[in-house]
C-alpha cells in the first residue's frame, strides 16, 4: 500500500462524517426551504414579514448583549481568579463553572425560581418583580449559561500573558488602570473575541431556556419551533433556520476577521 493511499484511507472517516452529518443535512435543509408553493420566494417573504425581521433583530440584540455582559463580568472575575491565590479559590471556581453541567431547561427553571410569579424576588417584593417570562429572563438565563465558558477562556489566556510586560509598563510609570487598557486588554483581545463569539453563537441558538420560560418569547429558535410544530410549515421553518445559521455565521466571520487583525498586530 503506498503512502498516498494510506493517507486517503485515513481521510475517509472524515469525509464520511462531513458528508453525513454536516453537508447532507444542510443541503437537505436548504432544499426543504424551497419546497413550498412559494418556492425560493419564501426568503423574500421572510424579508417582507416584519415579525420575522423583528424577531431576528431581537435575537441578535439579546445575543450581543449576552456576549458583551458575559465578557465584562468574566474578564474582571477571570483576571482576579487567575492572579490571586486564596483559600476557597478552588471551590469558588467549581461553583462558577457549575452551569456548564446544566441543560438549558434547568437554567430556565432556575430563572423562574428566581424571577417567576412564585419566584424568590416576587415573594420578597410582592406584585412587582416578575421578570422570568420576558426577554430579561432570557437574557439572565443565557448570561448564566455563558459566564463559565468565557471565564475559563479568559483565565487560560491570562495565565499565558507575559508578566514582564506589566512590569515593564510599571517601571515606565503606568498606573494600574493604564496597564489594563494598554497591556492586559490588548494581550487578551484574541481570546476575548473568541470567547465572545462562542457566547454569541450559543445564545443565538439557545432554545431550551427560551422554551422553559415562555412559549411566546420572540427569539428565532422559538419561531422556528412554532412554525414547525404548530403550523407544520416545514418550508418556512427550514428557511428561517437557514437565515439564523447565515446571520450567526456572518457575524462570527466579522468577529473572527477582527480577531485576526488583532492577532496579527499582537504577534
Amino acid at each position: 500500500m503506498t503512502n498516498r493511499i494510506f493517507v486517503a484511507l485515513c481521510l475517509l472517516p472524515l469525509a464520511v462524517f462531513s458528508m453525513a452529518f454536516l453537508a447532507l443535512p444542510i443541503v437537505r435543509l436548504v432544499q426543504a426551504s424551497g419546497e413550498s408553493a412559494e418556492g425560493w420566494g419564501i426568503y423574500l417573504q421572510i424579508l417582507q414579514t416584519p415579525r420575522y425581521l423583528q424577531t431576528l433583530l431581537q435575537t441578535v440584540l439579546v445575543s450581543f448583549a449576552v456576549a458583551l455582559t458575559a465578557l465584562a463580568i468574566s474578564t474582571t472575575a477571570g483576571l482576579f481568579l487567575a492572579r490571586n491565590r486564596f483559600p476557597g479559590r478552588g471551590a469558588l471556581l467549581s461553583i462558577l463553572t457549575l452551569p456548564l453541567a446544566f441543560p438549558g431547561v434547568v437554567i430556565g427553571f432556575l430563572i423562574i425560581l428566581l424571577g417567576g410569579r412564585q419566584g424568590l424576588f416576587n415573594t420578597l417584593l410582592p406584585g412587582h418583580v416578575v421578570f422570568a417570562y420576558s426577554l430579561t429572563g432570557l437574557f439572565l438565563g443565557y448570561l448564566y449559561f455563558s459566564i463559565p465558558r468565557v471565564l475559563l477562556t479568559v483565565m487560560a489566556a491570562t495565565e499565558k500573558l507575559d508578566p514582564s510586560l506589566e512590569e515593564a509598563a510599571r517601571t515606565l510609570g503606568a498606573s494600574p488602570w493604564r496597564i489594563v487598557v494598554d497591556v492586559i486588554l490588548p494581550g487578551l483581545a484574541p481570546s476575548l473575541v473568541a470567547a465572545g463569539a462562542i457566547a454569541f453563537a450559543t445564545a443565538m441558538g439557545a432554545f431550551g431556556t427560551a422554551f422553559t420560560l415562555a412559549t411566546d418569547i420572540d427569539v428565532l429558535p422559538m419561531v422556528i419551533y412554532t412554525e414547525f410544530t404548530l403550523s407544520a410549515n416545514i418550508a418556512m421553518a427550514s428557511a428561517l433556520s437557514v437565515v439564523l445559521g447565515l446571520a450567526t455565521w456572518i457575524l462570527l466571520l466579522v468577529a473572527r476577521s477582527f480577531a485576526g487583525t488583532t492577532v496579527a498586530a499582537g504577534g
Partner: peptide
C-alpha cells in the same frame, strides 16, 4: 512604588508591547 521610582529597565525577554 515602582511607578514613581523613575527607573528604566531592560528585561531579559525585552517585554516590548506587541500591540
Amino acid at each position: 512604588a515602582v511607578e514613581r521610582r523613575n527607573v528604566g529597565m531592560v528585561f531579559q525577554s525585552y517585554a516590548l508591547f506587541p500591540n
